[in-house]
Design a protein around this nucleic acid. Sequence first.
DNA 1: TGGATATATATGGTATATCATGGAAAAACA
DNA 2: TGTTTTTCCATGATATACCATATATATCCA
Lengths: 152, 152
Amino acid sequence: MGLFLSTYINKIDAKGRVSVPSTFRASLSNESFQGIVLFKSHAHQALEGFPMSYMQNISDRLDHFDLLSEEQDSLAMSIFAESVQLPLDGDGRVVLPAALIEMGGLKDQAAFVGLGHKFQIWNPATLDARKSEAVKNVRAKKMTIPKFEGGQ
Amino acid sequence: MGLFLSTYINKIDAKGRVSVPSTFRASLSNESFQGIVLFKSHAHQALEGFPMSYMQNISDRLDHFDLLSEEQDSLAMSIFAESVQLPLDGDGRVVLPAALIEMGGLKDQAAFVGLGHKFQIWNPATLDARKSEAVKNVRAKKMTIPKFEGGQ
DNA sequence: TGGATATATATGGTATATCATGGAAAAACA
DNA sequence: TGTTTTTCCATGATATACCATATATATCCA
């Protein structure tokens, strides 16, 4: 799978249309669904973005919890029920529904932030603060990248 | 994977273009993405450079954290959000974005420093100081190379 | 060994294609 | 038929591909 890297700031027009960065589109080129899946972040006023194929991965992870358990039920409800799949138009744009623009705290600009297998969409004004907070967290908790354990 | 060795100093032209040393390009020849990934070093005023496959590896390792967890979120943000993937042009060059030139403290020259699986890009003027500092550290703390623990 | 020729590399400049974006036409919906 | 949504087209800015040259390195032959 192609990775989502870098930060790109694009304009949201009056109809809610916004260009998905071309490098992101390139990462989606092998997807059967040509578009993205978005839902509100639980931790931030921002949107989480995934390729459709990765939603399968999320679903598999939720199987870690017992079926019908409180966790499974609540997580599934907050992620799957609230997510929307947005197809790319002929020019590489998606239309953000008004509800998502609101939930993401967006105005007339969208900052697409690559995070590897996923990405986020932020209001550019609040993104910088989050970035420095992230770096601070990594330093404070001395987070490191886990050694590869094989597996999948 | 081919190793990055030695130090090469190349010119940065007015458009930010710089030749990737041919030996580095040779190390990249088996990569599916013909280019490099760069991001600002957290420790120095310099740029970290990786092949795309290595970023893929980092992303896979981050999957060991819970999805949407604080750790996963902060680490991904601090690494992937600020990294850029630069394709090689037909003549073996990449264009450095102005932001990266600034962050790396570069002017009109780039020193490519091979460091094994990765490399760094320095302003030649500040690189010498860093090199002797590194040697001093190794001697003072009597650092040695750990034994191989297996893995890939 | 020496010289000439070929090959690869780094670097500079120019032309072309792509991208983001705004707007209009067409289609779908109620 | 009015309204919304989707598709199509135009354009300026930007980035990418293309071509040219010089310098260094390697190869070949006398």
